[in-house]
Design a protein around this nucleic acid. Sequence first.
DNA 1: ACTTGCAATGAAAAAGATTCTCATCATCAT
DNA 2: ATGATGATGAGAATCTTTTTCATTGCAAGT
Lengths: 140, 140
Amino acid sequence: MDNQDIRKAGLKVTLPRIKILELLENNTQRHVSAEDVYKMLLDKGEEIGLATIYRVLTQFETAGLVTRHNFEGGHAVFELDRGGHHDHMVCMVCGKVEEFIDTTIEKRQREIAKEHGFEMVDHSLIIYGHCGNPKCKVGY
Amino acid sequence: MDNQDIRKAGLKVTLPRIKILELLENNTQRHVSAEDVYKMLLDKGEEIGLATIYRVLTQFETAGLVTRHNFEGGHAVFELDRGGHHDHMVCMVCGKVEEFIDTTIEKRQREIAKEHGFEMVDHSLIIYGHCGNPKCKVGY
DNA sequence: ACTTGCAATGAAAAAGATTCTCATCATCAT
DNA sequence: ATGATGATGAGAATCTTTTTCATTGCAAGT
């Protein structure tokens, strides 16, 4: 039950929060900006303010329901936390995002942090490149 | 000669560009925002516009003289490209930035990209955590 | 079901970062 | 030296995100 997730986060179960969580769960593209969420909900006929989207997404992030990514482009994107951590691969042409996880890299990161006297809390690995689509290859 | 770097980038050698490059070379903190550069140059008595800072930093980035990072915090930071690529480790409390490079991770990244049909062009790896300073440990 | 406190909301304003416009000025090849 | 072209500064504009504040709605207790 999603509503329980909201309640567990110490937040009241309100319509905007339910709608935002539903959208994050059902939307085809997993990485969306606040603006994206706003427009999609408006398109669905919901009445909601952009400020609420930002507030709720930040609360969801604090609660660990959602992760915020600072990809290139001047705006943050949000993604529903489906249990497992993973890293990202972004196509610089079409913007396609692939997710991956690699134990070798994960392990090395912890080691490197320790070597530098750091205690790793989180990390962000983003590979930028050209995806398999021929239109995204160099030369076009 | 720095000015040659500017010229090689196809840019005219102007006072603002020289001053910005000098600052990036001599400043103690290697990661600075456009606003940082602006204030530092003003403090040094230089007359320069913020718009110019943004323009020049973007040009330097395009020319490969400078790298732009999208760390957390809503604004980009820039760093002089001193030849070698490297990744970052950021203290979530004091903001300290350490640099590192690890061949194991570098190699794996290329492999992973290929496995997903991507051709890697660039990447960004940022480890967030608590640095060695006792004040930055959990519990404070 | 009814009240009521406190959190949540929407709209608009504000703040912060970055880009754009445009008139003026400086660089550099000739 | 000089002229074409690119570069600059100031401010306006744009874009993203946060804040303010009056109003509304949830939820705990009756």
